[in-house]
């Protein structure tokens, strides 16, 4: 049987897309009318959003998250290297470190650090064979709410970072180490010039994820009275009882900060992931910019 030359084509109909679209639209309308009926003074939210105490809370949140994450990255690299060390003592110490700091809940770690003064009145580090001390301070003066939160969040995160870094180091081809050795590189230079740059590709995405978690995890410091976003919101609502309104303002700040961090992660991944890639591709911004500059071409 001969086939006719030009048979008409009927494209596939995507009924599912239409049905799901209608369902979602209906749900959104329902939610919208419920929120409109809710007893929330929406007009007050912008004021809380930009209140002085809220801005203080925002700054403290970001500073705590950045310092804790930075400390965690440095500690994580050290612990990861210890886990791969030839020295069995170092390996064992690293394993126990991860076991403890990953095992105990962050909130509990923060509380433990904050209450350290209950068991140690002073913290002192004597210099051996002398009467002098490296540190000799009352615990209360040393462990402020910020320091307790930093220790709790940073040490917990460093245990996770150690595992992330270890996965990154393991991802590098052993042939790379041999090549570095063969040109006479010392272990330290090999790590800096050959291993870490290649491990970054594996390390950065989960680290960005963890940092976003860290930004939100700072909220746990509110229980020890550290002035971060939630504590700031409570501060306002304890006076005017507008609990939902102040919490919404805090939520808006979290969303903004997390969004900024996500954009930062995108560029960091590009910078490290694509050094050897032939075509780096365009960022979303440059794609938009280009669409304004040159007329879109029709694909043939």
């Amino acid at each position: 049987m001969a086939l006719p030359e030009d048979v008409p084509v009927v494209p596939l109909r995507h009924w599912g897309r239409w049905v799901s679209g209608v369902v979602i639209l209906a749900l959104l309308v329902g939610l919208g009318s419920a929120m409109a009926d809710a007893q929330i003074l929406y007009e007050d939210v912008p004021g809380f959003f930009s209140a002085d105490v809220m801005i203080d809370g925002l700054v403290n949140t970001v500073v705590l998250a950045v310092v804790a994450q930075a400390a965690a990255v440095v500690l994580g690299v050290v612990v990861a290297l210890m886990r791969r060390s030839a020295n069995p003592v170092a390996r064992w110490v690293a394993w126990v470190y991860i076991w403890i700091f990953r095992g105990v809940p962050v909130l509990l770690q923060i509380l433990l650090w904050y209450n350290l003064a209950l068991v140690f009145k002073t913290i002192s580090v004597p210099i051996p064979f002398t009467d002098a001390h490296l540190i000799d301070t009352p615990t209360n003066a040393l462990i402020t709410a910020f320091v307790a939160a930093l220790l709790g969040l940073g040490l917990n995160e460093s245990a996770y970072m150690a595992e992330i870094v270890r996965a990154g180091l393991n991802s590098v081809d052993p042939g790379q180490l041999e090549a570095a050795k063969a040109i006479g590189m010392t272990p330290a230079t090999t790590l800096r010039r050959v291993v870490l740059p290649q491990a970054m590709r594996v390390i950065i995405p989960p680290t960005g994820n963890d940092f976003i978690n860290m930004l939100k995890g700072t909220s746990m410091a509110s229980v020890i009275g550290f002035l971060e976003l939630i504590h700031a919101a409570n501060n306002i609502s304890s006076r005017n009882l507008e609990i939902m309104e102040t919490l919404l303002a805090a939520a808006a700040w979290y969303m903004i900060v997390v969004s900024v961090a996500s954009v930062g992660q995108y560029y960091l991944e590009r910078a490290f992931g694509a050094a050897d890639r032939v075509d780096r591709g365009l960022t979303p911004w440059s794609r938009v910019a280009r669409s304004f500059r040159t007329p879109p071409t029709v694909r043939s």
Binding site: Q176, E178, I183, G184, M185, T186, D276
Partner: peptide
């Protein structure tokens, strides 16, 4: 020590079956 062994290797070049070039450079 490993550092000293590294110095000793500088006088000896090695070429591998699978090249092992640094891919990021």
């Amino acid at each position: 020590r490993e550092r000293e062994a590294a110095a000793q290797r500088r006088a000896i070049g090695m070429v591998f079956q699978r090249f092992n070039l640094f891919p990021h450079r």
